[in-house]
Design a protein around this nucleic acid. Sequence first.
DNA 1: TATTGTTATACTCTATAACTATA
DNA 2: TATAGTTATAGAGTATAACAATA
Lengths: 190, 190
Amino acid sequence: MPAPSSNSTANALRRVYRPRKPPSTMPVSPSNAADSAPEIDTSYLETLLGYNARRTALAVIAVFLRRMEPHGMRPVDFSVLSVVAHNPGVTSRQICSTLDILPPNLVGMVKSLQKRGLILRKPHPTDRRAQGLHLSAAGQRLYREAQATATSLELDVADRLSAEELQTLIGLLRKVYRRDAPVASEPQSG
Amino acid sequence: MPAPSSNSTANALRRVYRPRKPPSTMPVSPSNAADSAPEIDTSYLETLLGYNARRTALAVIAVFLRRMEPHGMRPVDFSVLSVVAHNPGVTSRQICSTLDILPPNLVGMVKSLQKRGLILRKPHPTDRRAQGLHLSAAGQRLYREAQATATSLELDVADRLSAEELQTLIGLLRKVYRRDAPVASEPQSG
DNA sequence: TATTGTTATACTCTATAACTATA
DNA sequence: TATAGTTATAGAGTATAACAATA
């Protein structure tokens, strides 16, 4: 059982990142059925928002898993910690509806983060059924590090985009999935 | 065993779409712990490309599942059919590396599409290990319908975006995940 | 020796039903 | 009656190892 550490060296991740194609030192290629076939045409799929959004998400997640390995955090753990960090006293139900996680699936995550000493539960001020979630001091330290890592890795993944392009991209994505959001046509400012 | 049909009425999908929050006829709300809490702050997460790309992908997929239900197709089935449709004679391995599917996981999908009479396997012209995949006549008909559905549902999901914004969005997404692609700064043209 | 397609299998992720304590 | 949190479990998705046939 890993004790909660104040640095980022502990807690090996359960799922280890491993590249699917081990880099062969030299392309010897004894024979490959795709030798003559020049390339696969995916031009139609690449016109689809869903296809491109999913491929992009998976590309970011792959880098996320590698870089967050020292912090022992999957994307969902990071999201939960982020919501707790920025909303002290938030309840499990609120996290579920915010992140679109089903309540039974959140239980284990919260339990695990609590066991690692990263979050605390306190009685809810007005509702005795609910519990308010808070980051511990160790949780705050780890989350601070993880957030810096996340911000940095995102810039690396998107290094083909200018800062302005990245802002445009994120703004357009939000416009698609946040159908509750205001329809303001302002340029992005955060 | 559903016979391959030329229309789009058959083949109920295994996983049925069901909205998570059944629409309550009236917001009676006997008591809710989040009553006083105004809203959850996710402003940091929303600055992250990975978070927004994933949320967008899930939003598109949710609509995809509903609208493709008559065609009995999950996103991955549609992607496979699309690659076969636009690349007759493509091999399983080529599909795997194109769509980032692991070979053991493709076997069942191909088998299922074949059992539905949508795709055919023919011996590979030069490699007796491999088999070329092709759409059957029924597969071509179904895929044509499905592609029209896909194109249409995407426009509905992105109805908050102008045509130009959608093109910009897709171009930026490709620029992120297709790290092999040319870095040309041309506007999109198809 | 390497690749294609495959089986078997393990692990992770996501979803449903049902329970208790409280509102 | 409805909600918060939970348990148990089913089902879908993703991963590895290992094999026969062929290159």
